[in-house]
Amino acid sequence: MYRHPGGSPDAVTVLWCATDGDERRRAHTLVVRAAAGLIGVAPSEIWLEHETGGRPVLGGAGTSLHVSVAHGRGALAVAVTGLAPVGVDVEVVRRLRAAAMARAWLDPAEAAWVTALPEDEQSVAFLWLWTQKESVGKALGRGLRRGGMSRRVPLPVQWPPGDDAPSAPRRLPGDPDVVSTAVRVDGGRRVVGVALHGGADDAPGAGDVRLDVREVSVAEVG
């Protein structure tokens, strides 16, 4: 039986797991159960829908919550919160042509940071930025369209970041209405990015956002 790991609508709950296939169905199940656990209702009272542009939204008893879903390459992640529109992304750490990709797609300051790192750290650094950009695009409701890859996200205060402990979300350099961060999980084998988008008067700041990032087992999701 699935046991919700706790959390609050006033925080951002991020749940992730490694999977052996069928990520889409499991992500659907996990986001509905996580939302139900946060507001104390049965999962049958909540359902998952999608806006015209593809953004997932909850129906039924879950309409007060914002959700985001990511899956692929044998992993899935969901984010649930009552604070503001949210985005989440998950990537498996793997060897990339990170320096070339950074120069081609990232903001010049971000590319300079990635390429200045030792070569064996460049791939995870690129993914640390990439997952945040994907998350920001989801929180904004437009994905990576309209210059999403060149949209700057905060560079880390220290590198490498600690595993399984996300840094506090920080405002985007070019958009103070959005905050983002990333965390390495699964012993550093995966990176999870998360972002929140507030309005001009209520944009969440680093001191306002509490992240709760947890692993669940694929057996729990079913």
Score class of each variant (00 low, 15 high):
residue 47 W to A: 12
residue 176 P to E: 15
residue 133 K to D: 11
residue 71 H to C: 04
residue 7 G to E: 08
residue 188 G to W: 06
residue 98 A to C: 12
residue 1 M to V: 13
residue 23 E to R: 04
residue 180 S to N: 07
residue 82 G to Q: 05
residue 4 H to G: 11
residue 198 G to M: 06
residue 217 S to D: 10
residue 119 E to I: 00
residue 195 A to L: 02
residue 75 A to T: 15
residue 185 V to N: 03
residue 216 V to C: 08
residue 133 K to Q: 12
residue 9 P to E: 07
residue 64 S to C: 00
residue 83 L to W: 07
residue 182 A to N: 03
residue 183 V to Q: 09
residue 111 A to V: 04
residue 201 D to S: 14
residue 141 G to I: 15
residue 133 K to Y: 13
residue 154 P to F: 10
residue 90 V to W: 05
residue 208 D to T: 08
residue 145 R to W: 14
residue 146 R to M: 13
residue 75 A to L: 12
residue 215 E to T: 12
residue 215 E to L: 14
residue 58 L to V: 05
residue 189 R to T: 10
residue 126 F to W: 15
residue 174 G to F: 11
residue 56 P to Q: 09
residue 137 G to R: 01
residue 143 G to H: 10
residue 183 V to S: 13
residue 130 W to T: 05
residue 143 G to V: 13
residue 168 A to N: 07
residue 102 A to R: 06
residue 65 L to Y: 09
residue 63 T to C: 00
residue 95 R to G: 15
residue 204 P to N: 06
residue 90 V to P: 04
residue 51 E to M: 15
residue 186 D to F: 04
residue 217 S to Y: 14
residue 86 V to M: 02
residue 189 R to Y: 08
residue 155 L to M: 10
residue 76 L to P: 04
residue 203 A to F: 03
residue 79 A to P: 07
residue 68 S to N: 09
residue 112 A to Q: 15
residue 22 D to S: 14
residue 141 G to W: 11
residue 94 R to Y: 09
residue 208 D to S: 13
residue 42 A to N: 02
residue 26 R to D: 10
residue 98 A to M: 10
residue 204 P to W: 03
residue 167 S to Y: 00
residue 43 P to D: 04
residue 7 G to C: 08
residue 12 V to D: 09
residue 99 A to C: 12
residue 40 G to E: 12
residue 205 G to Y: 01
residue 69 V to T: 03
residue 32 V to C: 02
residue 144 L to V: 09
residue 128 W to R: 09
